[in-house]
Design a protein around this nucleic acid. Sequence first.
DNA 1: AATAGTGGATAGTGGTACTCTCCGGTGTCA
DNA 2: TGACACCGGAGAGTACCACTATCCACTATT
Lengths: 211, 211
Amino acid sequence: MRISELARESGVPLATVKFYLREGLLPAGRRTSATQAVYDQDHLARLRLVRALTDTADLSLARVRSVLVGLDSPTLHEAVGHAHSALSGEPGDVDTETTGAQIAALGWVVHDGSPALAALARSLRSLEALGLTMTDAELAVYADAAARVAAADVRSVPTGSATEAVTTVVLGTVLREPVLLALRRLAQESQARMLWDGLSPDAGEPGSREG
Amino acid sequence: MRISELARESGVPLATVKFYLREGLLPAGRRTSATQAVYDQDHLARLRLVRALTDTADLSLARVRSVLVGLDSPTLHEAVGHAHSALSGEPGDVDTETTGAQIAALGWVVHDGSPALAALARSLRSLEALGLTMTDAELAVYADAAARVAAADVRSVPTGSATEAVTTVVLGTVLREPVLLALRRLAQESQARMLWDGLSPDAGEPGSREG
DNA sequence: AATAGTGGATAGTGGTACTCTCCGGTGTCA
DNA sequence: TGACACCGGAGAGTACCACTATCCACTATT
C-alpha cells in the first residue's frame, strides 16, 4: 500500500498523512528504495485511531501522542496510568487533601498524585466557587455510577493477549468517555421531559420532585 | 467596582476582561460618564463563570457564549436543550436509527434530532470502526449509570426561583461532566489496582460502599 | 521519454484566545 | 490649575494549533 492509497482508504487528506508522519503520530513505512516506501494494515489502523482520538475523543495531537505512547506500556496498570495522564493533564498544585479523603471514604484505593484526583479536586472547587457545591450524597451517586461503569470497563478487558489487553484498556478509557457523557445528556433530556414537560416556571413551581 | 478591581478580584488579566467585554461574554458596566463605568457582583460572578467554563469544562469561547445564552431560557426544558447543544455541537448527518432504537428500548424518551443522540451514534460508530464495539450489555451498564446520575441532577434542581432553577440546570449539566469523568478514572484506577495487582482478583463489585 | 506519484522539507493558512499599544477622557490629589 | 494614574474603546500584534500548499529531486509505470 502506497501513501496515496493509505490516504484514500482512510479518508484523510494526503497532506495530513504526511503531516502525521512528520509529527511521529504515524510510523514511517517500509522503505523499498531511497525515496519510496510501502504501508500496511497497521498503518491504516493507526491512522484511523489518530482520527478517532482527535475527532471523537476531541484530543489535541499532543494528547494523542501521549495516548499512543501508552499503548507500549508493559503492564495494564501502567497503561491505565498513561491514559489517565493523557486525559487529565498535569496534576498541578491543587490541594487534594479533602477530595482524597472523600475518595478514600468510598473504599477506593488511588495513588496520591493521581492526575484524575487532581482533576476531580479542581472540578469540585470550581463548582463551589460558583455556589454549586455538590453534596456528599450527590457525589456518592456520581461515584457509584462511576464505579459501575469502571467495573464494566475492567470486565471487558480481554485476558488473552497482553498487547490486546493494553490496547483495550487505553482506548476504552479514552473513547468510552464521550459515550458516557452522551448517555448522561440523553438521560437528562428524557427525565427532564418526564418531570418538567408542560410546566412553565413563570406559572409558579418549576415542579421538581423526587423521582 | 472599577474594571481594574474586577480584574484583580477575579484573577483575570485586565486585557482579558476588556477582551471579554468586546466579545460580549461580559455585559458592559453601568456608565458613570462618557468614558467611565462601574461593575458589580453580577459582573464578577459572570466573569468567574466564564473562566470556570473555559478552564474546568474546557469549552471554547463560542460554546461559552451559547451556554450563557441558555441561561436566558424561559423554560427548564429549553435550558436543558441549550446546554446540550452547547456541549454536543451540531447533530450533523449521522444515522441515528439503530442508536435511537437502543435508547428507546431503555424506555427513554428523547427528541429525534437530539444533538446528544447524534453524538452518541458518532461515538459508538467510531468504537466499532476500531473493532472495539460495545456490547448491548456494556451499553446497558453505561445507560444505567447515566440514568442514576441524571436522576441526581434532576433532583438537585431548586424549586424556588425560576432563574435559579435554569442556572442550576445549565451549569450543572456542563460543570458536572468533568466530575463524572474524573470519578470514572479514579474508579478505574482503584479497580485496576485491586484486580490486576494481585490483591483480590474477583472483587469487581460495582456498589463500592456508597455513603 | 512522458507522466504520475513519492518522500522530504519549508512555508503559508485560518482559527482561537488572548495581549499590547495607543488614544483622548476622567477622577483625584496637590 | 496642573500632574498623573487610571479609564473605556479600538486596532494591531502574538502564540499556538492543526493542518494545507508548494517545491524538489527522484522513481515507477506506460
